[in-house]
Design a protein around this nucleic acid. Structure first.
Lengths: 358, 358
DNA sequence: CGTGTGGATGTTTACGCAAACATTGGTTGC
DNA sequence: GCAACCAATGTTTGCGTAAACATCCACACG
């Protein structure tokens, strides 16, 4: 009775109608092929020499049984999982999904899977919690994509000894950081507008907590300042087109405003709409530059001049840096900047311009 | 420096200078607390009764040593990983990232991590490969987000016995499917335009391979047909704003075209631009409806009337269905439709209209 | 021919955890 | 007062894998 029950819930009953996915193990393959489990292991990993005939037998057995190595066991044995963890705040935000996709792709190419933990609210506790979870999951390294000032402020200290790469942060003195060259991108944008003859450039910035937003705003300010131009009050949005629209309405109402640098394309879209509705044609009266170069930007009205960000490259470098760390161990703090470039489209024009309407 | 000895014989040899992240195991905690490993396990899982004083001692030891359970060992023991795999084609495509985010969030709430494998080119081999990888990773279930006709065509058969939920596919007869109610959304869009008095509705469809695109196009055709309206030739885009723009140029050149239903918001954006550039104001001369309700749509010129899709809900239901399957086992094929609703904004207007310009 | 040599394969063991079983010591019930 | 019992805790075992070590056998060489 006991015996039976024992066997039963072992193999897979328990649940009504439930055949527990009985995995095929090396032992099964070994039995089938008439060899030892170790030989199966050798074939599976191609390590030691196995005589060809044996090899074929084992392979055949594997095929017939549908054998798949169990990565849990492997991980237990090796202490590593061939998995990279990604902790991020907001997957749907413009660049993040593309960065993650690139990370996943490159990781996959190196035989790593990626495990994702989104953090809803970026508090210290949540980030640390995510890290703990990653630790339990025995990931080999972690990419933290956290645009907010959490890591740089030093409020959150990542577990020492863990392999980690940070994206979009100012923690370059303490962690290896991969980031888009925010400052240079913003400089290009502002200079472009200045070069067109605009006396100064207004800025619709991203939220205060955002590291990228600060960097862009800082660069904007510094270019204006070193060019000896007046620095208008900065308007803040929250990255959304709606917030850009609101800021844009205010800007459009100011006749002295002829050039706007929005900290991302969505907000630029909002500015475009605000200008349009306020009867200030773009680019005839107002020039607008965005940031990100999302695919849609080329189809805005008018097509948006913007700063192209190479998210895929960011992802690639993350994986590269992480893998280097995993195999080489020593992590070198420092910031790896991915260049940006200005894409000139139809939303910017020389100033002063003939008052042609668009 | 007892750590040295440990490190030396434990994992850390091999690599020069490599201190392999020496994990703290139950045995370590047990030793520290002066109890058996099993007791630590009991405390860790809160299963059997442990006397309070012992419990506290163990907890203290855990804290001091920074103990984290090793999920690899756990997975090996239990045969399951508390991980959900997500296989998808194109993370950055509009809805996917939001769906994935919702999946990750809900999965996390249930104590599951998610592992992501993006498939670059959706061929049978790649999908199967991803599945194999998931299998190796010993995930407990898999969500497949694959908008292309791969699964429905039956070309790709998912491994039987695996717990799986499919998003965005027509495989409802063979797998549990969670999907947005594409057909109903499209119907709402087309009816809306018809109700406004337009004699018929043109359609800019998504790519042929896309399941969602087919469903939307079918619904469009069926509404027109049952209303006894002429069915214009359908134009195909590839979801991008650019392709929408190209289709839009052709449409705008046709004076009989007064209403356009674009299969997604991006293409609608392109149509908007095409109409604008062709001097056919929206909505005065042409009404345009999109699909998805991406956040930006509200800021288009003019703000876009579109069909709202609840990606988060799709993600939620995926997890729910998958978890039910994991604990209950029997999977019931069938399609779970998440409702859509039309969001009326400024891109649609009655027809015929006074010829006011926008 | 015996002895070494080395290649092919088998056996043992440990990775960290937890279920099953064993042990201990203190109650309870008759 | 002793058997039956229970609660707290310890011991054994096995999950699937692969490194380390142990065998075995064929072949070469003195």
């Amino acid at each position: 009775m006991d015996q039976q029950a024992r066997t039963a819930d072992r193999g897979g009953a328990g649940v009504p109608g439930g055949r527990r996915k009985q995995r095929v193990s090396m032992a099964d393959v070994a039995a089938r092929a008439g060899v030892s489990a170790q030989t199966v292991s050798r074939v599976s990993n191609g390590h030691s020499a196995v005589v060809e005939s044996t090899r074929q037998q084992v392979l055949a057995a594997m095929r017939e049984l549908g054998y798949r190595p169990n990565s849990a066991a492997r991980a237990l044995r090796y202490g590593q999982f061939n998995t990279i963890g990604v902790i991020l705040f907001g997957l749907s935000s413009t660049g993040n999904s593309r960065t993650v996709e690139a990370i996943a792709t490159h990781a996959a190419a190196a035989g790593y899977a990626i495990t994702l933990i989104p953090v809803g609210v970026p508090t210290q506790d949540n980030v640390l919690g995510a890290f703990t979870r990653m630790d339990e999951l025995a990931v080999d390294g972690v990419v933290v994509i956290m645009e907010v000032h959490l890591l740089d402020a030093g409020t959150v200290a990542l577990p020492p000894g863990a392999h980690v790469v940070v994206v979009d942060s100012d923690a370059g003195d303490r962690y290896p950081v991969v980031d888009t060259d925010q400052a240079d991108g913003a400089r290009q944008a502002v200079r472009h507008l200045l070069d067109l003859g605009h006396p100064t450039v207004h800025h619709v910035a991203g939220p205060e907590e955002s590291y990228a937003a600060s960097r862009r705003a800082d660069a904007w300010r510094s270019v204006l300042s070193s060019a000896g131009r007046p620095i208008p009050d900065l308007r803040r949005g929250d990255w959304s087109a709606r917030s850009g629209y609101e800021a844009g309405l205010a800007l459009a109402a100011d006749p002295s405003c002829t050039a706007v640098f929005a900290a991302n394309d969505q907000m630029a879209l909002g500015v475009l709409r605000a200008c349009h509705e306020s009867g200030r044609p773009v680019p005839a009266e107002v020039s607008v530059v965005g940031f990100d170069d999302i695919p849609d930007a080329a189809s805005y009205l008018p097509p948006l001049t913007t700063v192209h960000q190479d998210f895929a490259e960011v992802g690639r470098r993350c994986v590269q840096a992480l893998l280097a760390q995993i195999s080489d161990s020593p992590a070198h703090p420092g910031t790896d900047l991915v260049p940006t470039r200005l894409i000139t489209r139809a939303s910017t024009a020389p100033y002063p311009s003939g008052l042609r309407r668009m």
